[in-house]
Simulated scan of single mutants.
Amino acid sequence: MMPHLLLIPLIVAAFAVFAESRPASAQAETPVSQCQMIARSLPSVTFASFSAEPALKVQAKANEEVKITYIGHSTFFLETPAGVKIATDYNGWYKPPALPTVVTMNKAHSSHYTTNPEPGIEYVLHGWQDGSPKGADHDVVVGDTYIRNVPTDIRNWGGSMEANGNSIFIFEVAGLCIGHLGHLHHELTEKQYAEIGRLDVLMVPVDGGLTMGAESMSRVVQRLRSSLILPMHRRGPPISQFLSMFGTGFDAVTDDDATMTVSIRSLPKRPTIHILSGV
Rank of each mutant, 00 (worst) to 15 (best):
54 P>Q: 04
252 A>Q: 06
54 P>H: 04
26 A>R: 12
256 D>F: 07
178 I>M: 00
10 L>W: 12
1 M>R: 10
57 K>V: 09
126 H>E: 13
225 R>P: 00
13 A>Y: 13
105 M>K: 04
130 D>V: 13
34 Q>A: 14
147 I>S: 10
170 I>A: 01
249 G>H: 07
76 F>V: 08
251 D>N: 11
60 A>D: 08
118 E>F: 02
68 I>T: 01
211 T>G: 09
161 M>P: 03
59 Q>D: 15
40 R>W: 14
252 A>G: 07
191 K>E: 15
114 T>Q: 03
63 N>V: 11
212 M>W: 05
85 K>Y: 04
241 Q>G: 11
83 G>N: 04
211 T>V: 07
199 L>V: 04
30 T>A: 15
186 H>D: 11
54 P>F: 05
161 M>Y: 11
85 K>M: 03
84 V>S: 00
186 H>I: 06
229 I>M: 02
128 W>M: 05
83 G>L: 04
35 C>H: 06
171 F>S: 03
115 T>P: 14
19 A>W: 15
203 M>R: 02
16 A>F: 14
214 A>N: 13
50 F>I: 09
183 H>N: 13
179 G>A: 14
94 Y>T: 11
209 G>T: 02
272 T>L: 08
171 F>Q: 01
100 P>M: 01
118 E>G: 08
43 P>Y: 05
195 E>W: 06
11 I>Y: 11
99 L>E: 07
108 A>K: 13
261 T>R: 09
54 P>Y: 00
262 V>E: 00
123 Y>S: 14
208 G>R: 00
96 P>Q: 08
39 A>L: 06
204 V>T: 10
120 G>R: 10
278 G>I: 00
215 E>S: 12
165 G>L: 01
189 T>G: 14
75 T>F: 10
254 T>G: 08
167 S>N: 05
101 T>A: 02
170 I>D: 00
53 E>C: 12
248 T>C: 12
160 S>P: 09
179 G>W: 06
239 I>S: 01
240 S>E: 13
85 K>F: 01
102 V>F: 01
24 A>K: 11
251 D>F: 04
158 G>D: 15
217 M>S: 02
234 R>Q: 11
258 A>E: 08
266 S>N: 09
90 Y>V: 05
160 S>T: 13
67 K>D: 03
267 L>W: 02
135 G>H: 07
66 V>D: 00
259 T>C: 00
223 R>T: 08
253 V>K: 04
57 K>Q: 14
220 V>K: 00
88 T>A: 07
227 S>G: 09
48 A>D: 15
101 T>N: 13
25 S>M: 09
71 I>F: 02
32 V>I: 14
157 W>I: 15
